[in-house]
Structure formats: structure tokens, C-alpha cells
């Protein structure tokens, strides 16, 4: 005899159990998403006191009259590309190192995770101080080593976004490293031995044995890093504040400014949906490329 009689069908019972979760998802995901779509179709602006439906007016304005959109898009793409490359390089390097057997490996693995445990705000503050010409470590070291006579300015209009990408990657690389490490540990040793027997060198073994196994973790890391980088705001706000000039103003920064500084909630929502569509497009490209069967 079953403990619970079937006076409700399995489907009804399952739905009843899921109901709280469904309501939770509607309240926290579906409703805000729907509301932001609706806002993007209005001229909702607190400073002007307007909230009228204007159709796709905001979207048209983005592409036709916003003098900063194209520049912000360019900065976003550059930042995201740099962040992805640095994350993959750092993450994979760390994973390969941590996969080796050596004394103190456990301790090193723990230390390697530390940057990821720091808040974005803390990372931004840390890098701001590291690169400060007056009180920063890098500037002091350069002067101490006789490489510079006075304070060194690291963040210029030309390279500030590279520094932001570096700070971002330093913070996030351990996440990718542990994805890669998990994958590396399931690669059969036999494959490496066979490849070696066949005369494959270290680079060919890495390319033909290691990389194919890392394909899915690579996809996950690529997706996560792209999404995080394209939508990163706190780091930029705290580290460079979008400057010097407009050199680190990404799309997500521009969304923040329009929404919370200029009070243009409608326009800010439209910008954020455009950003979302761009990220979605990049994600689809990743999936298409990385899940394509060889010779298919």
C-alpha cells in the first residue's frame, strides 16, 4: 500500500508542489522582465515627469541620435574580448598548473581561489590603489627601481580599459580554472601515453588530447565570462568611473548612467535590452561553433 493515496493525479500533485516555486519565478523573473520591456517602450523619465507609451521610439533614438552608443558598444566589445582572452589564458594556465602533482598543491589550490572570493568593489578599490600614481604600489615600485623619476600615470585614455579587463580577469579567472581543472582530471592518462607512443610532442598532445576534452567547460567559461564582462558595471564605476573621458564607458555603464543618474528609466531599459540581445547573439555563436560535430 502506498503511503499517500492517489486522490490527486501525479501531474496535479507535481504542479501543486511546484506552485510556490512558479510564483517565486514569476515574481522575481517574469514580472521584472516584462516590466522592463514595457518601460523600454515608454518615455518614463522621473526628471521630466513623463511616462507615455512611445513604441520603439527609444530604440530608434539609440541608433539614430545617441552620440555615445556606438562608442560605448566599441568599448564593450573591446573589454569583453580582452576579458575573455585573459580569463581563458589565466584560467587554463592555472588549471594546468594545479593539475600537476606537487607538494602543497592543496594549499596552492586554496590560494588560487582567493581572488574569486573578493567582492567586485574590493577588487576595484585594490586596483585603483595599485595603479594610483601618488600612493600606488606600481608607481612606488617603478620609482624605487629607478624606472621613473616621479609618480607614474598608468591609466590613460588609451589603455584604461585594458587595466579594467585585467582587474576583471584577475577576479574571475579562478572560476574558469576550476571548471577546467575538473575536466582535466577526467582525461584518461592512457590517451597521453598513446599519443606519446605515436610521437606526439607536448604541444600536439595538448591540442589533440587536452583541448577536445575541455570543449564543454570552455563553452561554459566562454559564456559566463562574456555575460559577466558585457554586463559589468560595479568594477568600472568604482575603478575608473568610466574615465578618463569616455574611455571606459561600456554599454552597461551607459545603462546605469541613463537610468540612475539621468532618471531616464525608459531609455535605460531600451539600452539594457539591446545589450541583452547582443550578449544573446554572442552566446548563440559560441554554441554553434563549439557544439558543431567534427566532419559533420
Amino acid at each position: 500500500m502506498p503511503l499517500i493515496k492517489k486522490s490527486l493525479s501525479d501531474v496535479q500533485f507535481g504542479l501543486a508542489l511546484l506552485l510556490p516555486l512558479i510564483l517565486f519565478v514569476i515574481a522575481l523573473n517574469i514580472y521584472p522582465l516584462g516590466y522592463s520591456i514595457w518601460m523600454s517602450l515608454t518615455d518614463y523619465d522621473i526628471s521630466r515627469g513623463t511616462k507615455n507609451f512611445i513604441g520603439f521610439g527609444n530604440y530608434a533614438h539609440v541608433f539614430s541620435a545617441d552620440p555615445y552608443f556606438i562608442r560605448a558598444l566599441g568599448v564593450t566589445l573591446r573589454f569583453t574580448a580582452e576579458a575573455v582572452l585573459m580569463n581563458i589564458a589565466l584560467g587554463l594556465g592555472m588549471a594546468l598548473l594545479l593539475n600537476e602533482v606537487f607538494r602543497g598543491r592543496g594549499l596552492i589550490r586554496m590560494i588560487a581561489l582567493l581572488p574569486w572570493s573578493m567582492s567586485t568593489y574590493a577588487v576595484a578599490t585594490l586596483f585603483r590603489y595599485l595603479t594610483s600614481p601618488d600612493v600606488g604600489l606600481f608607481s612606488a615600485a617603478a620609482q624605487y627601481l629607478g624606472l621613473a623619476a616621479g609618480p607614474v600615470t598608468f591609466l590613460s585614455a588609451g589603455n584604461a580599459i585594458d587595466w579594467v579587463a585585467l582587474a576583471f580577469s584577475w577576479n574571475l579567472a579562478p572560476l574558469g580554472a576550476f571548471f577546467f581543472l575538473a575536466n582535466l582530471q577526467v582525461i584518461p592518462e592512457d590517451l597521453y601515453r598513446q599519443a606519446k607512443t605515436d610521437g606526439a610532442g607536448a604541444i600536439r598532445r595538448f591540442w589533440h588530447v587536452t583541448i577536445p576534452y575541455l570543449r564543454y567547460s570552455l563553452l561554459v567559461v566562454l559564456l559566463l565570462v562574456t555575460i559577466f564582462a558585457a554586463t559589468e558595471t560595479t568594477l568600472i564605476l568604482t575603478f575608473t568611473g568610466g574615465g578618463p573621458g569616455v574611455s571606459t564607458q561600456t554599454l552597461s555603464y551607459w545603462v546605469y548612467v541613463q537610468t540612475f543618474t539621468n532618471y531616464a528609466f525608459g531609455y535605460g531599459s531600451a539600452l539594457s535590452w539591446i545589450l541583452m540581445l547582443i550578449v544573446l547573439f554572442i552566446g548563440i555563436v559560441y554554441f554553434t561553433v563549439l557544439t558543431r560535430r567534427r566532419g559533420g
Partner: peptide, 21 residues
Amino acid sequence: TPHSVLTMKQTDFLGAFSTGK
């Protein structure tokens, strides 16, 4: 003036002058 002022936040600005340089 140093060119680094463009990326300074208020705390950096204060910190810089307080170095006495």
C-alpha cells in the same frame, strides 16, 4: 597638473594632495 587626475575619484584626489607633493 598630473594627467592621472582624470581617473581620480574624490578619495584619490584627497590622497594625492595629502602626499605633500
